[in-house]
Design a protein around this nucleic acid. Structure first.
Lengths: 133, 133
DNA sequence: TTCACTGCAAATGATTTGCAAAGCA
DNA sequence: TGCTTTGCAAATCATTTGCAGTGAA
């Protein structure tokens, strides 16, 4: 619903503009998946929405700071994950593709202390995959 | 020593050319660190060696397949780690810089099974860091 | 000799930026 | 109205590629 999306953006301190509401809707309507700025731009074109690619880039980064999507900095492009719960990723080296590890998540212990003046912002576990055989 | 470097390359099935021997020496003489192709290229220029940037790219990838360096695909550039032992990384989000987690390494359990047709090529733990405060 | 490797410069692909026009508060 | 956002095209940055010349076996 429209008003709800507006509230979501406001809660994230993001001013609700037409473009941002559109993008939020596209993201939520498509279910959990991994987006690149370009793939989302294509989705927008396909569904008849006119947006500039630069706006998609900007908006995804804004959404990432507002925890509406999760930025995964793996491989040679920017992936944005619509699943904002705590989870980790498979990474297909051959294709550069990223997807969620389903079900129970891997667990990390024996974590190091961060260097002086730094703090831990998060932990990512990347399980690299290749074709079996 | 020259002959030893040659043997190292041969063992990795990499034909020892002048450029590759030079790069291997640069990598080993500098101690453990994290390189980008460009940073290594600069090191080469500084030490008076003439190499093309494209060759540095090629060579680092060849060395990565031969396990002479480790390719770390985090952030928006290619990092190559001269530490080939099993270890994980800190990632400074603000600067895009990568460095080794020193000492005892984090440990991952509860690993997921790979999807059908795939096998696990490796696990990377990325500890994201930000300025404390 | 033969095939792999290198250098160079141009091509590519992802992402960012500058700036004028349009939109939200 | 005043500050933010958008769109567009150009700029940037990292990386790859095509190809002619060079080198290793």
């Amino acid at each position: 619903m429209h008003c709800n999306d507006e509230a979501v953006l406001r809660a994230a301190q993001i001013r609700p503009t037409r473009q941002r509401l559109t993008i939020l809707r596209l993201i939520r309507d498509g279910g959990h998946r991994h987006l690149t700025p370009d793939s989302l731009y294509q989705e927008a074109l396909t569904s008849g929405v006119r947006l500039s690619l630069a706006t998609v880039y900007n908006t995804l980064h804004e959404f990432a700071s507002g925890n509406l999507v999760k930025h995964v900095a793996v491989g040679d492009r920017s992936w944005f994950c619509t699943n904002t719960t705590d989870h980790h990723h498979f990474y297909e080296v051959a294709t550069g593709r990223v997807h969620d590890i389903p079900g129970p998540q891997p667990h990390v212990d024996n974590l190091p202390a961060p260097p002086p003046g730094m703090e831990v912002a998060g932990i990512d576990v990347i399980v690299r995959l290749r074709k079996a055989g």
